[in-house]
Simulated scan of single mutants.
Amino acid sequence: MKTSEQHIDRILFTFVVLLMFIGLFVVFSSTIYIAGSKYNSGIYFLGKHFLRVLLGLAIIIFFAVFVDYSKLREYAPHIFIIVLLLLISVLIFGTGEAKRWLQVGPLGFQVSEFAKIGTIIFLSYLLEKNRDRIWDFKFGFLPLFGTVVLVFILVLLQKSFTMAFLIFSVGILLIFIAGAKFKHLALSISGGLPLLVFMFFIEPYRFQRLLAYINFSEAPNDAKHQALQALIGLGTGGLFGIGPGHSRQREFYLPLAYNDYIFSIFGEEYGFIGSLILLFIFFVIFYRGIRIARYVVDDFGRFLAVGITFLIFLTAVVHIGVVSRLLPPTGIPLPFVSYGGSAMIANCIGVGILLNISKQIKH
């Protein structure tokens, strides 16, 4: 019999580590000037990011090797209760202008990043439990849809529209895959559209971003500055890029270049070819995740694998779409590449669970 380590999807693990390795280079390149200017140390951000990468790797290995994913089924209701308590707590005690962060002593974390993993775990548990009656609108479908909407609203109240949208999209996808009637989904989503439109337009900055996206040429410079600088970075890169560490957009032209717009720096330094390679890495991770979901032996593991895989992949698609101006501007980090602790740790938990599932698939 093979050892558990031999069953882990090594291709998935390798490509995730590769992304993290790429992230170290791009974070260093995109922060060297701002770190030297603000902290008198060009490696200030790199040092912090390196520690988070090491912690992320440890978390991946821990969940992949030592945490049996099927045990998460037993704790799923408790995990979801913790998620709800955290989402409510951040609305009351949260720090920052948007109140997305909870501060516990010297440590601060973005609650929604961990809420997305907890929600997928609980929803996978509910889907397995209620799959035989998911066709029933009142007793099967509605509790599932209500769970997704509840988290969506709580995250939306944190002024995190993109994260709320990602959680909602993945939740609806899982419910649909589980066998929900299309008319139930269509009816429920259309019924909630007025609330969504209201929540979107109640914040002026969202409306301004949308207008700037629709009428880019006529938008004020301050409304389109980030999008314009991101496009300049991508365009400057050409076919092969201007070379590692030679980005000009990082020099105070592109705000949050090391986080929400890191793909622009990557495209500038490594060009169109490098960008295609990065996209290929994400597609490989997506393929391996779906493959795991296809061969897993139980519904809970299948829904969990699909949810985690799509969450990571859609986050990457949205980030790249925003930087390329294919989507309206919003703030979302590129998984495993962007600077940031909460997103890195939450995504590593997800990949660790995914790798643990891969140990128990039917070969």
Rank of each mutant, 00 (worst) to 15 (best):
Q103H: 12
I121E: 07
G271R: 03
F263S: 03
P143R: 05
A178G: 06
F303D: 00
S169T: 15
F280K: 04
F176M: 14
A305L: 02
P329C: 02
F165C: 14
L127V: 05
L84S: 07
K129N: 08
V53L: 10
H246M: 10
T147R: 05
V197N: 09
S29M: 05
Y125F: 13
W101Q: 11
S37M: 10
T330P: 03
R250T: 03
F300Y: 07
L55C: 13
G233P: 13
L46T: 03
A316S: 15
P77F: 10
I61V: 15
H246N: 15
R291Q: 12
I349C: 08
S41Q: 06
A180I: 02
Y69E: 00
M163C: 14
L210E: 13
F266H: 02
R10F: 15
A180H: 00
P255C: 04
S217M: 12
F310M: 07
Y205V: 12
G105N: 14
F80S: 01
V27I: 09
H225E: 13
N40Y: 09
K99Y: 04
G340Q: 06
E128R: 06
A35K: 00
E218Q: 09
K224F: 06
P143A: 08
G340M: 09
A257W: 00
I43M: 08
R10S: 14
N259E: 00
I277L: 15
G36Y: 09
I262F: 01
F272Q: 05
I214N: 10
V16Y: 01
S169V: 15
L196C: 10
V317G: 09
H319K: 11
S190A: 12
E128F: 07
F50T: 04
P194R: 13
S275D: 04
G350E: 13
I32T: 10
A76S: 11
F168E: 06
P329M: 08
V90R: 00
F310I: 02
S264P: 06
L87F: 08
R250D: 02
S190L: 13
M199D: 01
A230R: 09
Y33L: 13
F145Y: 09
N40G: 05
L354I: 06
E218C: 03
G179A: 08
I214K: 10
W135Q: 11
G331V: 06
E113W: 14
A305H: 03
S247K: 02
V323K: 05
I285A: 08
I175P: 04
G56W: 05
F93A: 10
I202N: 14
G105C: 12
G238E: 14
I273E: 11
G241M: 08
F50W: 06
A180T: 03
